[in-house]
Amino acid sequence: MLESQDLQAIRALIAKAKRWDAFFGVLGILSLMVGVLTFSALFVDMAIQGIPRLDGNFFINFPSRRAENAGILSAWVGTVLVMFVTALAAVPLGVAAGVYLEEYAPKNWMTDIIEINITNLAGVPSIVYGLLALGLFVYQFGFGQSILSAGLTLALLILPVVIVATRESIRAIPQMIREGSYACGATNWQTVRDHILPYSSAGILTGIIIGMARAIGETAPIITIGALTFIAFLPNAPFAGDPPAGLFDWLFSPFTVMPIQMFNWTSRPEAAFQVNAAAAGFVLVLMTLLMNGAAIWLRYHLRKNIKW
């Protein structure tokens, strides 16, 4: 009973425990601050270094031996083309795999293997995908060190992200929606096409954007397949050039991408190239921030609007 205990002792104990509480609260905020400060330092430092370099010419110049003439034209065009291939491969495959696992897959060992496999792939270091692509796409399939190889490599890399996002947003659809559809006489595929995909599309889109944001910044696997760091030309547009290029010739063209261009400049000793690296890095960070921000915004609004 309390009467027999020393109330003062209890109070002292609580006060002590609460001091630890307060101490931990401060510790938590300080830990968060490490992240905030690092990010701010990184962003501000790069902005100060890089923004003065960001004039129109920077975007329409090829890389050059002279730092002040160098630009990121071939890099951003390369990034756009590689991302295009990546999206074209990863989105249908990832969404289809996600739909299969949620709506079709029977409960058996095959499904278990696929699921465990996807979890494991998400943890495979990105450079290993580079080695895979080097052995498989570049040499076995003979795609060479091309936009196609790079796009497919990154597609494999972000496939788990797209699959997981697809599955999660499909899983959020209540069973009664499916039952309603089947009760109308719809087939499995009609249910998926008319209900499951439309209702989960925003969630899937969020996953795709996050995956693409990751792909855009990936450097290691693309270097591994042998992307060149100095490219002073653009892939041929379809039917352009002499002799005229075919519709898909650009797929097999050598290329560079933004992060590789930045890496190239970062590893130069001259300070002027460091400035270029900062400028390219700033553009790169802005792109990923915008994409991730869009995904976060999308998810936030999704959560607010959907009511089943």
């Binding site: 309390l2 209890i10 109070r11 609580i14 425990a17 609460k18």
Partner: peptide, 9 residues
């Protein structure tokens, strides 16, 4: 009054 003290009693 501290809720923790209350819960101890």
């Amino acid at each position: 009054v501290d809720p923790i003290e209350v819960r101890m009693r």
